[in-house]
Amino acid sequence: MTVSVPHSLDDAVRLLGEHPDAMLLAGGTDAMVEINDGHRRPNAMVIALNRVPDLRSWRHDPVSGTVTIGAGVTYTELMQEPLAELLPALAEASRTVGSPQIRNAGTLGGNLGTCSPAGDGLPVLSALDAEIRIVSSSGERTISVHDLMVGVKQTSLLPGELIAEIDLKVRAGWQGYAKVGVRNAMVIAVASACLAVDSEQRRVSIALGSVGPTVLRCADAEQQLSNAVDWTSGAVSPDAIREFGTLVSAASTPITDHRSTAEYRSHAVGVLGARLARRAFATSEGAAG
């Protein structure tokens, strides 16, 4: 076994090209748990990505309205201004990840690479239709996040490929993330949701975590709420929000496991959806809903 610590993306990609079976190590917050437990034993090469400067930076292009985040940017960094102001839902989701120690190590690229149904960053990337830049020694490709996340801890990455950057559009309109767990701090989501409003396109998107094999979008609920909103006043009726919650629940396909039951998860994710919708829009008739 060999551990490599490349200091440039070119070196990382070259090493990965020579050793396509290498294990990529980002923040280590998932991988090291498995290694410590003996559930995973890397036997060929480990390529650590935490010292590659190209992966650790982000940039904002105001002309195209795009934020490009290196895969090695940590949750702590995602919570800081000005990034937090450009992508508030991502900052909010990052704040719910683990503890300061975990947020200092864990990265957005690692979240994607692990592709856990409970990954806190993933509903945000889905709701914002992130584009993922993937590189390998033979070139690069950009795919939608929806095509990257294919199942429980399964991505469509090919051997020899690594996640380099995540592109997100800056949107006008409210966005937020909500999560249910057994307590406030240090908790893995039992159910989670990201709602993002695009007030220019007059569209609402919502993506759910921990209630399916991977992150789920809710086409019916999105359509219903987008149609129900009075886009001039930004108001929506309490009935429409209730219906939205029901449609969100209906879109979920959870399982029962050691963290929760399928029934609770379906119910909870509908409550989260309705709660986010109430935060996003004023409810007409003055009801608190």
Partner: peptide, 11 residues
């Protein structure tokens, strides 16, 4: 600040 149990020492 990190958890040293989650850092692979050789990295």
């Amino acid at each position: 600040l990190v958890c040293s149990c989650l850092v692979m020492a050789a990295t």
